[in-house]
């Protein structure tokens, strides 16, 4: 059984199909990149997986349970227990210190543990910045605090929507390195990115366009340790639709 499975997901805003019959599987421990032009539905998909939004149609199976029709209260519980979120704009509580921001995730999940939170900050290399407020941290440091916060409760999936979008190359590298470490430890990662360099370090890249999956590529150069059976579901699918077909459809 896959950890996450989307079955014919639609998200419809009036006339607009933000997601249009999207199906996909993510295995436990897998690292998946999602690419696509602006407006292709990447964030919409992440919000649905992250239990912050519900699809208009279709099923979302997380650990075999369909969460697409859950009440928002139950979704909060699922999100809290199973998902770690990282955003492009960092999003830290601006009046709490780095370590308090990490403890916040513990607070809602179970019980805050300052020692454990400090260890998480150590892992992202920010032990000496633990008592700083977000405004006293650089963008890269803030994003590393967000990574520490996302991993503190050992979530089943870490969802990152453009985590390096606001970072320079040096910081991008630090964050990608952190993803490598998490992946090595068996964490499932789904990372939305515009940056091919960030995308290609993943095991699999899914390309969206106009709310449809147009490409699913297995990264041949993937160097990380792989935690699931080699054969598994990882077959390179050729383009579901050719670029020409898509263009023809768009012009209609």
């Amino acid at each position: 059984m896959s950890l996450l499975e989307l079955k014919h997901i639609y998200k419809i805003y009036g006339e607009l199909h933000a997601l249009d019959d999207v199906s996909m599987k993510v295995e436990k421990g897998e690292w998946v990149s999602i690419m696509g032009p602006s407006g292709s539905g990447k964030s919409t998909m992440m919000n649905i997986i992250g239990c912050m939004d519900k699809p208009s149609k279709g099923e979302v199976l997380l650990d075999g349970v369909d969460i697409s029709k859950e009440s928002s209260k139950n979704l909060t519980t699922v999100r809290r227990d199973k998902i770690g979120l990282i955003f492009q704009q960092f999003h830290l509580v601006n009046y709490l210190t780095a370590v308090e921001n990490v403890m916040l995730a513990q607070y809602y999940h179970s019980i805050p543990d300052e020692k454990e939170a400090m260890e998480a900050l150590e892992r992202v290399g920010l032990a000496d910045r633990a008592r700083h407020l977000p405004s006293q941290l650089s963008g890269g440091e803030q994003q590393r605090v967000c990574v520490a916060r996302a991993l503190i409760n050992y979530p089943e999936i870490i969802l990152a929507d453009e985590p390096t979008g606001n970072l320079d190359e040096a910081n991008e590298e630090i964050v990608v390195d952190l993803f490598h470490k998490l992946h090595d430890e068996g964490t499932t990662l789904i990372v939305v990115t515009h940056d091919p360099e960030v995308a290609e370090v993943a095991q699999k890249t899914i390309v969206l366009r106009n709310g449809r999956v147009v490409k699913e590529v297995v990264n041949q150069n993937f160097t990380g340790k792989i935690h699931f059976s080699e054969e598994g579901t990882h077959v390179t699918k050729t383009d579901l639709k050719s670029e020409e077909e898509i263009k023809a459809e768009e012009s209609k």
Binding site: G50, M52, K73, T76, T77, R79, R80, D81, L85, H91, L92, V93, N94, L104, A105, Y108, H109, R149
Partner: peptide
């Protein structure tokens, strides 16, 4: 609002 959204995103219930 952003902070509230964030708290909810990382698992805060309405009650909290």
């Amino acid at each position: 609002r952003k902070e509230i959204g964030l708290r909810k995103a990382i698992g805060a219930s309405d009650a909290s």
